[in-house]
Design a binder for these strands. Structure first.
Lengths: 206, 206
DNA sequence: ATGTTCATACCAACTAATCGGTATGGTGTC
DNA sequence: GACACCATACCGATTAGTTGGTATGAACAT
């Protein structure tokens, strides 16, 4: 079966789109850019996707699936303590901020900034993609809340969004500085907030 | 003197650029878009600015000056306690998240996302513009730190960037949701972090 | 096996529209 | 008449998308 061969071009185009859009944004990324990076021609592009918009939507969908798998396999899930998993998540995100900026920044965050008002379909996928990711965090947040601060006034959802906001904001500064250092230090504050919020006793064993 | 008249078109173009770019991003914003919103012709545009890039740089510079003036006049500066000023700043930013998204989001954050790798001049202005704003916050952070937690391990600068990261990230979710509610709730967490960080005694008078 | 049929995948060349930018000329003010 | 300011018409380059066609291989009858 040549199924793999047949789909190779499509996969290459989706991956290329994800990478270039994260670096240049949606509008500045041309169809020719994507084709060149993928090593295919425009004819192939419009065979697999009926428009640039269509490709972007599929690329965003695939991005969501891919990243969910990526974080599902991440090492921080091994911890038995839900708070440790949350802290581990933040530490993991700090740890992966190495190499090129485009490699660790988020397609959803980049996309939605410039499309929220003009491309409703793209906006919705970014919204639901980020919300899906936050939903996985919310499980640990809920457990940690029940365990450490069951009487807390803040909602589980809002903390999930706050964590993700701090991350997305950190990416913006990584881009502005063309350096991840400041962004990493910001995420240390995020980690510190979680520690303070759940009032983790200082003498507790890790 | 007709100085004001002469500069009216230029001012209109700068303001139009700031508003449209915040809604659609840099690349998706066309020169014609800006001219139409400003109510002037292309001839006027290229009389005042030698290129779209040039206009964007001037618009970003003016944005920085304008926002610094805006925050300088904001009511939270009245508080004598530096921590209260910091909390007041966050509350102020929550309060102004009303009306259209383009009205309260940040030009720098939107711009730098899609230009950091391709337009170095724009990137630098966004970087220094945001850093200048953070520098004003750092004064209050430093005072609060000396007053409440002089032995704290975190740096003044890093907290300034964290506050701004949380804000920029909140804007992304306001765009993704086309609604400021989630973003506001995120900023309540930011406020809570500041309160926890400085260990504000519960029985202290406001 | 072999030839026919058909759909999928792909390609190079093209098109219509839009982009940033220019050329040129007009108008009001000093 | 010199100059800043602005309007209109235009230009070359680039854009997303189209065209007409080829290569490949699976399905099936012979």
């Amino acid at each position: 079966m040549t199924m793999q061969m047949q789909h190779q071009s499509k996969t290459k185009l989706l991956t290329a789109a994800q990478n270039i859009i994260r670096a240049k944004g949606y509008t500045a990324t041309t169809v020719d850019d994507i084709c060149q990076e993928a090593g295919v021609t425009k004819g192939s592009f419009f065979h697999h996707f009926k428009s640039k918009d269509d490709l972007t939507i599929e690329a965003a969908k695939q991005w969501g699936k891919m990243t969910e798998g990526f974080f599902k396999e991440a090492p921080y899930h091994q911890y038995k303590d839900p708070l440790q998993r949350l802290i581990g998540y933040v530490n993991f995100r700090i740890a992966i901020m190495e190499g090129e900026i485009r490699e660790y920044t988020c397609l959803f965050g980049t996309l939605v900034q410039e499309t929220y008002d003009t491309h409703p379909k793209i906006r919705k996928i970014c919204d639901s993609g980020m919300s899906t990711h936050i939903a996985t965090l919310m499980k640990d947040i809920e457990e940690a809340r029940n365990l450490y601060t069951p009487e807390a006034a803040w909602s589980i959802e809002s903390l999930g969004y706050f964590i993700q906001s701090a991350l997305q904001g950190a990416f913006i500064f990584a881009k502005a500085k063309k350096d991840a250092e400041i962004a990493k230090e910001s995420l240390v504050h995020l980690r510190q907030y979680l520690e303070l919020l759940f009032m983790k006793p200082k003498n507790q064993k890790e």
